Computed example of a mutant assay.
Amino acid sequence: MTIRHKILRSLDAHRRALGLDVTPYSREATGDPKFLANLARGRGVSFRSIEKAEEFLRRDPAGLDLSATVFSSDTSADRAEALGDA
């Protein structure tokens, strides 16, 4: 599973736990209403947008066990992999 799929799976679980549709969740999390759709389609999303989504998830985990997400602990290795620095 790619890092993109891991991030998408974690954010989609959070979105569902909050009861939000894709567009409102994307807008609230990152300011970009197309963020999750672009991520799902493999289109380029900025690393900063991913960080914003992570911050949003951490501010309100909606009862999710963050240890079961890609954002569980130190993800510096995953981030380096996502940026091609691994």
Results as ranks from 00 to 15, higher is better:
Pro61Cys: 10
Gly31Cys: 00
Ile7Leu: 10
Leu64Ile: 03
Asn38Phe: 15
Lys52Ile: 08
Leu11Asn: 03
Thr75Asp: 13
Gly31Arg: 14
His5Gln: 13
Lys6Ala: 10
Glu28Tyr: 14
Tyr25Ala: 06
Ala17Cys: 02
Ala53Phe: 06
Leu83Cys: 04
Arg16Asn: 09
Lys52Met: 09
Leu36Gln: 02
Asp78Ala: 09
Phe71Glu: 07
Leu20Cys: 10
Asp65His: 06
Thr69Ala: 03
Leu83Asn: 09
Arg58Gln: 03
Ala53Ile: 03
Arg58Lys: 07
Ile50Asn: 04
Asp78Tyr: 12
Leu36Asp: 06
Ile50Trp: 01
Asp12Thr: 15
Asp60Val: 09
Ala62Cys: 04
Leu11Asp: 00
Thr30Glu: 08
Val45Gln: 02
Ala40Cys: 10
Leu66Ala: 02
Arg16Leu: 12
Ala53Asp: 01
Gly31Ala: 04
Glu28Asp: 12
Leu66Trp: 07
Leu36Lys: 07
Ile7Ser: 02
Lys52Pro: 07
Ser76Met: 10
Asp74Leu: 01
Leu83Phe: 09
Glu54Asp: 01
Ala13Pro: 07
Asp21Glu: 15
Thr23Glu: 15
Thr23Arg: 13
Glu51Met: 13
His5Val: 14
Arg59Tyr: 01
Arg41Gln: 14
Ala77Trp: 15
Glu51Trp: 13
Met1Leu: 12
Pro33Asn: 13
Leu20Trp: 05
Arg9Leu: 13
His14Cys: 07
Asp21Asn: 11
Glu81Cys: 05
Asp12Glu: 12
Asp78Ser: 10
Glu51Asn: 10
Ala40Ile: 12
Asp78Met: 10
Gly31Val: 07
Arg9Lys: 15
Gly63Val: 00
Phe47Val: 15
Glu28Arg: 12
Pro33Lys: 13
Leu18Pro: 08
Thr69Lys: 04
Leu11His: 06
Ala17Leu: 09
Thr75Met: 14
Ser76Trp: 05
Asp74Phe: 11
His5Glu: 14
Phe35His: 04
Gly63Thr: 00
Thr30Pro: 03
Phe56Thr: 08
Asp32Trp: 10
Gly84Thr: 02
Ala62Leu: 06
Arg59Cys: 10
Ala82Val: 11
Arg4Gln: 12
Glu55Ile: 15
Glu55Asn: 15
Ala17Gln: 01
Asp74Cys: 05
Val70Asp: 00
Asp74Gly: 05
Arg4Glu: 04
Asn38Pro: 05
Val22Gln: 08
Pro24Phe: 00
Tyr25Cys: 01
Pro61Glu: 13
Asp12His: 14
Phe71Val: 01
His5Ala: 14
Arg4Tyr: 02
His14Thr: 04
Glu55Met: 14
His14Gln: 10
Gly19Leu: 02
Ala77Asn: 13
Val70Arg: 04
Phe47Ala: 14
Leu18Gly: 08
Ser10Val: 07
Ile7Ala: 02
Ser73Met: 12
Thr30Val: 10
Arg59Pro: 09
Asp65Trp: 03
Asp21Cys: 11
Arg27Gly: 06
Ala29Gly: 04
Val45Cys: 04
Leu36Tyr: 03
Ala37Arg: 15
Asp12Trp: 06
